[in-house]
Design a protein around this nucleic acid. Structure first.
Lengths: 227, 227
DNA sequence: GAATCGACGGTACTCAGTACCATCTTCCCA
DNA sequence: TGGGAAGATGGTACTGAGTACCGTCGATTC
C-alpha cells in the first residue's frame, strides 16, 4: 500500500518544519533528516517537495472519474453532485491536515498555484463529462458545458473554503444547497427526457402586465413540444 | 518602457529554441547565448524561465482592475463585459505569439499550470468586484458572486481557446454572445434599481396547467414589491 | 547456502534562481 | 573638457530541487 512508515514520518516532519520555519525556509534535506531517512528516500516517496503536501491528488481524480463513469444518462447530474460530495468529504475526513494545508496554500504562492492547477484538472473532468452527457456538438452547448463545469467546481471550492476557515458547521448540507443553486442556473440543460408533462414557465421580464402576455403564454403551451 | 532590444531578442530566442528542442530541453543559458547576452541579463529582464512566455501577465491584471474601477453601480456588468473584452483583445492583438504560447502550454504541464494560475488571479479580481457590487454580505450572495466570476472567466477562456485553435473568425462577437449567455444565467443578480415597472415572471416547473396556477401568479403580482 | 528482489543511502550531476562584484557606457554638471 | 554618478551588463559563486547511478543491506525464495 501507500502506507510506508517512512512515508508518514516524512509527511509529519515536513508539516512540522513548514509550520516552524515556513515552506521556503525548509529544504528537502531538512525534512529527510528529521524523518531519519536519506534525501533520496524522500524523493522515492514524493515526486517533489510540493507533493508531500498534496499526496493523494491523483487518487481524488480517479475517484471523481469512477463516480462519473458509473452513471446513466438520466442520473448524470446526480453523479456530478455525488462526485462533488466525494471530494468535499475527502477533505473533511482529512480534518486538521486539510486545514494545515490550507494555511500553507494561503501563505505560499507556489503552493496556491499548485492547488489551483489541481482544481483545474477536476474541472476538466467535469467539463468533459457534462459535454458528453449533453451530446450536443453545438458551439453553444460546448460553452454551456464549460460554464456548468466551472460553476460546479466554484460551488465546491466555495463550500470547501468556508469549511476550511471554520465557517461551515455542516459542509455536506451546504454543498448540497450550493449544488442545487448551481443546477438551478441551468434549467434548459435538462434534456427533453427529464421534462415531463405539465407547464413549464420560462423566465423573462417585460413591460406588459400579466393579462397582456397571457395569449403568448397560451400559444407557447398549446404549441406543444416544438420550442 | 519595457521595450529593451535585449529583452525582445531574448523572447525571440526563447520561443525559437522552445520550438526547436522543446521547453525542458532548453536551458536559460541556451536562450541567453542565442540572444547574445549573459545569463544574468536574462534574469534581469524576466524573473524566471516561464516568465519569458507570460511577460505581461501583471499588466493585464491592472488593465482589468482599472476597467472595473471606473464604473458606477449601474454600469458594473458593462464593466465586467468590457474587461473581458479587453483581455481577449490583448491576446488577439498578440496574434501568432499567443498561438505559439498556446502550443507550448498544451504540451508542457508546468506551463499549463502557470497559465491556469494566472487565470485564477483574473477570476479573483472579478469575484471581489462582483461581490462588492452585490453589496450583500449574505452567504448566498457570496456564492452567487463566486459562481458568476467563474462563469465569466470560463466564458472568456472558452472563446479564447476557440480563437487560439483557429475556430473563431470573430472572437469579439463570440465573446459578446458568450457574455450575454452568462449574464442571462443570473437574472436575480440584477439589483432592484435595475428592475423597472412591468411584469416579472419567475422560472419554475409544475405539474399543473396554466389556468390552475394563474391565481398564484396574480397574487404574486398584486402582492406588490414585498416578495 | 546461494540467488534474487526491493528498499535504502550516498555521490555526483544538471539547472533554475539569487547574491555580489567589477566593468563599461552614457549622460550630466562643474 | 574632465570627472563622477547612474544604469546596464557580464562573470563568479552559491543554494537548493530534482535526476541518475551505484553499492549495500535485509528478507524472501529456491
Amino acid at each position: 500500500m501507500s502506507k510506508s512508515a517512512a512515508r508518514t514520518r516524512l509527511a509529519d516532519a515536513a508539516f512540522a518544519l513548514f509550520d516552524e520555519r515556513g515552506y521556503e525556509q525548509t529544504t528537502v534535506e531538512d525534512i529527510a533528516e528529521r524523518a531519519g531517512v536519506g534525501r533520496t528516500t524522500f524523493f522515492r516517496h514524493y515526486r517533489s517537495k510540493e507533493d508531500v503536501i498534496f499526496p493523494d491528488h491523483d487518487r481524488l481524480l480517479v475517484l471523481i472519474s469512477d463516480r462519473l463513469a458509473t452513471s446513466s444518462h438520466s442520473t448524470a447530474l446526480v453523479a456530478v453532485s455525488d462526485a462533488v460530495r466525494l471530494v468535499l468529504l475527502h477533505y473533511v475526513d482529512e480534518g486538521d491536515l486539510a486545514r494545515r494545508r490550507y494555511a500553507l496554500t494561503s501563505k505560499v504562492a507556489a503552493l496556491r498555484d499548485r492547488e489551483i492547477a489541481g482544481v483545474a484538472r477536476y474541472q476538466r473532468l467535469f467539463r468533459e463529462f457534462i459535454s458528453e452527457w449533453m451530446g450536443d456538438p453545438t458551439e453553444s452547448a460546448s460553452l454551456r458545458a464549460e460554464l456548468m463545469a466551472a460553476a460546479v467546481v466554484a460551488a465546491h471550492n466555495h463550500v470547501l473554503r468556508r469549511w476550511l476557515r471554520g465557517e461551515a458547521s455542516d459542509p455536506l448540507a451546504e454543498v448540497d444547497e450550493a449544488m442545487r443553486e448551481v443546477l438551478a442556473l441551468f434549467p434548459a440543460s435538462l434534456s427533453p427526457r427529464e421534462t415531463g408533462a405539465g407547464t413549464t414557465v420560462v423566465a423573462f421580464r417585460t413591460e406588459q402586465d400579466l393579462d397582456a402576455l397571457l395569449p403568448s403564454l397560451r400559444r407557447l403551451i398549446e404549441g406543444g413540444p416544438e420550442r
